[in-house]
Amino acid sequence: MDNQADIDGVDAKDLVVTETSGSGYGQISINNNVIAIIAHETAKKVPGVAELQGSLADGIAGMIGKKPKDKGIRIGKESEELLTIDLTVVLEFGVNIPEICVQLQSAVKTAVEGMTGQQVFAVNVVVQGIRCPGEKKIEG
């Protein structure tokens, strides 16, 4: 992935989506944070996804104000037109992991493309853990 940008504001580059109608109105810029929120809200609606899990870097960024909806999501650009979205998730115990991941990839790709008009090259999913029934989220 070239030109990958974290969405924590340190290197948050705007993605430019040009008008497709040729109307000459100008450019529309969509910040990576917006794409991260779309991915987050979509991911948490997929049955079997317990939470998006941030990395150690996300934990450190949380100390300096990184928003919870950015946690576990990384947005990169394959080219000017193509996005790559990396998700780190915790799934519920007992689910079919490959099936849930494919549903997650499809849902996030469809939502981001539908809401932004930006093409998604890939949605990469890393399963960080499994949440057992009755297990509570540990806040750190």
Rank of each mutant, 00 (worst) to 15 (best):
residue 106 S to I: 08
residue 108 V to A: 05
residue 73 I to Q: 04
residue 6 D to F: 08
residue 28 I to Y: 12
residue 121 F to G: 02
residue 20 T to N: 14
residue 85 I to P: 05
residue 118 Q to P: 02
residue 5 A to V: 14
residue 110 T to K: 14
residue 38 I to L: 11
residue 51 E to I: 01
residue 61 A to T: 06
residue 57 A to N: 13
residue 134 G to P: 04
residue 79 S to N: 12
residue 108 V to F: 07
residue 41 E to W: 03
residue 104 L to K: 04
residue 118 Q to S: 11
residue 19 E to A: 09
residue 17 V to K: 15
residue 120 V to M: 02
residue 16 V to R: 11
residue 97 I to D: 08
residue 131 R to V: 00
residue 74 R to P: 01
residue 128 Q to R: 15
residue 138 I to Y: 04
residue 37 I to K: 12
residue 89 V to H: 04
residue 118 Q to W: 02
residue 58 D to T: 04
residue 95 V to R: 06
residue 124 N to L: 04
residue 96 N to Q: 11
residue 134 G to R: 00
residue 39 A to M: 10
residue 112 V to E: 03
residue 90 V to M: 06
residue 65 G to P: 08
residue 130 I to M: 12
residue 37 I to A: 13
residue 73 I to N: 09
residue 90 V to S: 07
residue 80 E to W: 00
residue 33 N to K: 12
residue 37 I to T: 12
residue 46 V to G: 03
residue 112 V to A: 08
residue 116 T to I: 08
residue 44 K to I: 15
residue 95 V to M: 04
residue 97 I to T: 12
residue 108 V to T: 09
residue 29 S to D: 04
residue 134 G to F: 03
residue 139 E to W: 07
residue 136 K to H: 10
residue 2 D to K: 15
residue 8 D to F: 07
residue 16 V to Q: 10
residue 107 A to T: 07
residue 10 V to F: 06
residue 125 V to H: 05
residue 49 V to N: 00
residue 9 G to H: 01
residue 105 Q to P: 06
residue 5 A to F: 13
residue 106 S to Q: 14
residue 71 K to A: 08
residue 39 A to P: 05
residue 124 N to R: 13
residue 77 K to H: 10
residue 11 D to F: 06
residue 137 K to C: 01
residue 103 Q to P: 01
residue 11 D to M: 03
residue 87 L to S: 06
residue 8 D to N: 13
residue 111 A to F: 00
residue 103 Q to N: 13
residue 67 K to L: 15
residue 125 V to A: 02
residue 17 V to I: 15
residue 140 G to L: 13
residue 136 K to N: 07
residue 133 P to Y: 06
residue 10 V to K: 08
residue 24 G to R: 05
residue 75 I to S: 03
residue 27 Q to H: 01
residue 63 M to N: 10
residue 30 I to N: 09
residue 83 L to V: 11
residue 109 K to S: 12
residue 94 G to L: 03
residue 36 A to S: 13
residue 117 G to R: 09
residue 17 V to L: 06
residue 87 L to H: 04
residue 64 I to E: 11
residue 39 A to S: 14
residue 113 E to S: 07
residue 88 T to Y: 00
residue 66 K to Q: 15
residue 97 I to G: 01
residue 127 V to P: 02
residue 70 D to F: 07
residue 8 D to E: 08
residue 98 P to T: 08
residue 56 L to D: 11
residue 51 E to R: 14
residue 38 I to N: 03
residue 77 K to S: 13
residue 59 G to Y: 02
residue 83 L to M: 12
residue 34 V to N: 09
residue 35 I to Q: 02
residue 95 V to F: 00
residue 135 E to G: 11
residue 7 I to R: 07
residue 63 M to D: 11
residue 138 I to C: 03
residue 11 D to V: 11
residue 127 V to T: 12
residue 81 E to N: 09
residue 128 Q to L: 07
